[in-house]
Design a binder for these strands. Structure first.
Lengths: 234, 234
DNA sequence: CATACAATGATTGTGTACAATAATGTACAC
DNA sequence: GTGTACATTATTGTACACAATCATTGTATG
């Protein structure tokens, strides 16, 4: 954790991380086409590595892969969004229940450190702030020690980011930092029900921010153009 | 669902399906090395396609991938096993709650059909029977209409199969078919609490079958050899 | 003028060759 | 005889080239 030898990740892994970050920071927006050639050129690697990265992203549900047509940043439907938020409530409630009163001093330290990062990033770096907000929830899951729970939380949180990119009115971070702080406090105090209530409230405020009736940008090019078609002579 | 045009899956997809089936039918046991060359030769495809398939399996958690060393059928640890069973209880309870009283006639038909398949396979084909038992649970999840829930159930069920391959005493199917039947009945009757109790009992009987203290074969070569090392002169 | 069809272009799917890395076998020194 | 260092071998990681497939555009025809 301190200063290991350079991990020497494979090229595919590097590309994967970069693309994932870009998506989670909402710099690559839902629906964007991810051309293998373009990415390979940009990263100075072969298409082989890019394909591997894209496949991994597909496994995470961040990318949709259409046969012979290519990869696109996933566009969660409104129904899918409701689905994911529902699952998030279930999963993260479980996280809270497992954590309440069981946080080790080291855990608290990690959480505080992360929140500090969030506070530092908030005024300066919008995209980074968005990603860090999501990673707070993933960190909580990690502290349960359950690999599988972590994996599932990670997946739903990541896809929430996509949902907000598509449906949120203001292009804002997903979470309020002070709510994170309060959750930590309740967990530390061992107050399970308060912590769970806080988390559910927190998630609710995220879900509310999404207006599932109106996709932000290209919810189909066709749907957008309908508004302009009226201006044309019939 | 009846007779679509030939789906024309890609080669990577074909290899993926075949390997996945083999693992879920416990013909490829945990710890088995999955050599790219060997698989490529067997399926008469290039290593490229095999690599793609292996990566997808890694995404499912069925395969562990060690850098520059290759892919191996995953060997869930005892801790991991407890973790997964715990999550399964949570996820499948949710499935039951969502389904109780909401089964459409078509859904019931599909469930019955599946159970029939199970009954046919049981005396004849052990491995197939194992796989079908797992797929019953996945089918239940599908009927909720929640893609994400289905995905998570699918993953935990699949890994349960690995766990049983590693820890179960008798090389047996995971589920008793008649318990499946009773769950369907309770769901159809809209009796949520009975259905949930049945499911939890059902999952419990699966978990019990695993003796988490004694891995079946190679739970680390090292761990095994410790018992023999004592025989050597110090 | 709308529709169906065919050629074209671009992009992905696949196979093969090479480079890098880790595991294994062997020889040598102590 | 034992342990270490080196050479060998096998396997994965990567790049590149070709084949297959699909979308689009242009053209002909009703």
């Amino acid at each position: 954790m301190t200063s290991d030898v350079p991990p020497k990740r494979s090229r595919a892994e590097n590309v994967y991380q970069a693309l994932r970050d870009a998506i989670l920071e909402q710099n690559l927006k839902p629906g964007t086409k991810l051309s293998e050639d373009v990415i390979a050129g940009e990263f100075k690697v072969s298409r082989t590595s890019v394909r591997a990265a894209l496949q991994q992203l597909r496994g995470d549900g961040l990318v949709d892969h259409q046969a012979n047509r290519g990869a696109f940043v996933a566009e969660p439907s409104a129904e899918n969004a409701r689905d994911i938020f529902s699952l998030r409530r279930m999963l993260e409630s479980e996280v809270i229940r497992r954590l309440a009163g069981n946080l080790k001093p080291d855990d608290v330290k990690r959480l505080r450190k992360h929140v500090e990062q969030e506070e530092r990033a908030r005024p300066v770096n919008g995209p980074l702030s968005i990603r860090l907000a999501g990673e707070f929830h993933i960190l909580l899951a990690e502290l349960t020690g359950s690999q599988v729970l972590t994996r599932f939380v990670s997946e739903t949180v990541s896809r929430s980011s996509l949902i907000l990119a598509r449906f949120a009115r203001l292009h804002s971070s997903e979470c309020a930092v002070d709510e994170h702080v309060r959750i930590i406090a309740a967990l530390q105090a061992g107050d399970a029900s308060t912590a769970e209530a806080l988390m559910l409230h927190h998630l609710e405020s995220v879900a509310v921010r999404a207006d599932l009736r109106a996709p932000n940008s290209d919810g189909d090019t066709a749907a957008i153009l309908k508004r302009y078609a009226r201006a044309l002579p019939t």
